[in-house]
């Protein structure tokens, strides 16, 4: 039986490093795949929100209202509830409710609306004069999106996806607790349920390192892209 005192944190002999590595890869895989999908979906939704704001066309206004409602609703649902709520949908989409792949739908549906709001805000913060200049040159709406909105707001988009990814890492751990695999799963099952605090500690340290790496890469990218100052 394991000792349950504070020294239990340091009983590293109980750590199965092979398992730890597998779980780390699962967490990274979950994070990166959901980040990519969230980035694409979030930018698309953010653009849709931005482009449909203040339209005179009643149909467009309706679309804006529907998208905004979708975004607000899914942003408000606590993640742990969202996973449970989406279980039947996950079963339908992925074919299982266990393992890393099963965590993807709820991770994406929870984070994409969050990022979409950041994207919309980034577009609103752009200097309208630049958009007007592009219009005066005869740019199409699509050219303005591709050549003005996206590149000019890139630092905000990248720092937004960094923040979103870091909360995604937290969500992967939560998803792990109900069987999605990854470090959260390991910390819960092999750490908490088997009274093995060393495993929990190591999993925590690895997650912190992953967060730091994503933050560092995000900051580095923003610094490289931002030519404003």
């Amino acid at each position: 039986m394991n000792d349950q005192g504070l020294s239990s944190y340091f009983q590293f002999s109980n750590v199965d490093w092979g398992n730890m590595l597998t779980s780390t890869w699962e967490t990274l895989w979950l994070t990166i795949v959901s980040m990519i999908v969230v980035a694409i979906l979030g930018i698309a939704l953010g653009l849709l929100l931005f482009e449909t704001t203040d339209s005179h066309n009643p149909l467009v206004r309706l679309l804006n209202w529907v998208v905004a409602l979708f975004v607000n609703v899914f942003r408000s649902i606590p993640f742990i509830i969202l996973i449970v709520l989406l279980l039947p949908i996950t079963q339908k989409l992925v074919g299982t409710i266990i393992g890393p792949r099963a965590a993807l739908p709820s991770l994406i549906i929870s984070a994409a609306p969050f990022y979409a709001r950041m994207v919309e805000l980034a577009f609103h913060e752009l200097d309208h004069g630049v958009v007007e200049a592009a219009e005066s040159m005869g740019a199409t709406r699509w050219q303005i999106i591709r050549k003005v909105l996206l590149p000019e707001s890139m630092p905000a988009l990248v720092s937004g996806i960094t923040v979103t990814t870091i909360s995604l890492i937290g969500y992967t751990a939560m998803a792990g607790a109900i069987g999605a695999g990854g470090l959260g799963n390991l910390a819960y099952q092999d750490g908490f349920q088997s009274n093995n605090n060393a495993i929990t500690l190591v999993a925590t340290v690895i997650i912190v390192i992953i967060v730091f790496i994503f933050q560092f890469l995000g900051d580095l990218a923003v610094k490289h892209i931002d030519k404003r100052a």
Binding site: D127, E132, A133, I225, R228
Partner: peptide, 19 residues
């Protein structure tokens, strides 16, 4: 849009793309 190609415009705050 084709007509706009034939008309250049400059602005008080320049409106350049900083990127």
């Amino acid at each position: 849009r084709e007509q706009r190609h034939k008309i250049g415009m400059i602005f008080q705050h320049f409106n350049l793309l900083w990127s």
